[in-house]
């Protein structure tokens, strides 16, 4: 029951995250900024619109947004993205989680290639490049968590009586935060504000989506941020071990919005990295996770 409540809360509240980030960025820039509910307004508007499809595109382009969101929803089922456990839990759900995110990326990249635009091809190429380097970092971090908890299921890891602490925790958190920024296309990897620059990645892949399709994509992006943010938050905050520990939804919500604020601060204080430097940062995430494995 509590898991269903968490699931519903994630579905409802995820679009707040980009709103919070934008508000923080506006604060740093000395502007008032848009409402934190902006994405909800956008979604309502987009869902009410018609659509324009590129004449070059076909079935795969239409499959992209739906399959991508479907994969993210399935991933939410195995992620304890709230104060309690997840909807479904079994040995190896961490592997399924990572590959569901990969599925979502796979169909998005193909939809981008289906338009035949060289801009979108460029974004697609970068997306697969950076995610291929982020994947090892994510899996190495999972290995650290699994080793410490003695289990490889998110529920057992996050409710473990033997949580990761001290130096390994800091190292893994750093690695996972880098992966969080990279996978959600935030600065320093990608600038969500730019739509037409040669350095962009995610935003360029969805240039040709419109109307309900674009609503599904924007919502999916917010949900993905909630999902990967949950990994960082569940790890960073003391949720207490075992079944008797404090399982507080309030603590989780505080954590995930604090993460959004932190992301906003990073975006306000940093510039996007030069494209050539991005692989180095992703490799360093793998190194951090590996170091955590060695000292834990």
């Amino acid at each position: 029951m509590t898991a269903i409540a968490d699931f519903a809360a994630a579905l409802l509240l995820a679009p707040l995250l980009p709103g919070v980030i934008n508000r923080v960025k506006a604060f740093f820039a000395g502007r008032r900024g848009q409402s934190v509910f902006q994405l909800y307004y956008d979604l309502r508007k987009l869902l009410a619109k018609g659509a324009v499809y590129s004449s070059a595109s076909g079935f795969v382009f239409r499959l992209g947004p739906v399959a991508s969101l479907a994969a993210l929803l399935a991933a939410l089922a195995v992620m304890p993205a709230g104060g309690h456990g997840s909807l479904a839990s079994f040995d190896g759900d961490i592997i399924l989680f990572a590959y569901l995110l990969a599925l979502s990326r796979f169909v998005t990249v193909l939809a981008a290639l289906d338009t035949g635009s060289s801009f979108e091809g460029m974004g697609a190429s970068r997306e697969v490049f950076f995610s291929a380097l982020a994947e090892p970092a994510f899996f190495l971090s999972l290995a650290v968590l699994a080793k410490k908890a003695g289990a490889f299921s998110f529920n057992l890891i996050f409710l473990s009586a033997n949580p990761v602490t001290g130096t390994p925790l800091l190292l893994v958190l750093a690695a996972l935060f880098i992966v969080f920024l990279a996978e959600n296309c935030r600065i320093p990897f990608d600038d969500p504000n730019t739509h037409l620059e040669l350095t962009m990645i995610h935003e360029v892949m969805v240039l040709d989506h419109s109307g309900p399709d674009f609503a599904l994509i924007s919502y999916g992006a917010a949900l993905k941020m909630w999902l990967l943010g949950a990994v960082v938050v569940r790890l960073a905050l003391p949720f207490g071990g075992g079944t008797g520990g404090a399982q507080s939804p309030a603590l989780f919500l505080a954590g995930i919005f604090a993460l959004a604020i932190a992301t906003g601060i990073v975006e306000s204080c940093m510039a996007r990295l030069r494209l050539l430097k991005v692989p180095a940062l992703l490799l360093s995430a793998s190194m951090l996770a590996f170091a955590a494995f060695m000292v834990s």
């Binding site: 869902l47 018609g50 040709d208």
Partner: peptide, 15 residues
Amino acid sequence: LLAGRAVASAPTWGC
């Protein structure tokens, strides 16, 4: 959602 709305086909946007 799209039933009855305008669904158009246009060239890929070339920026």
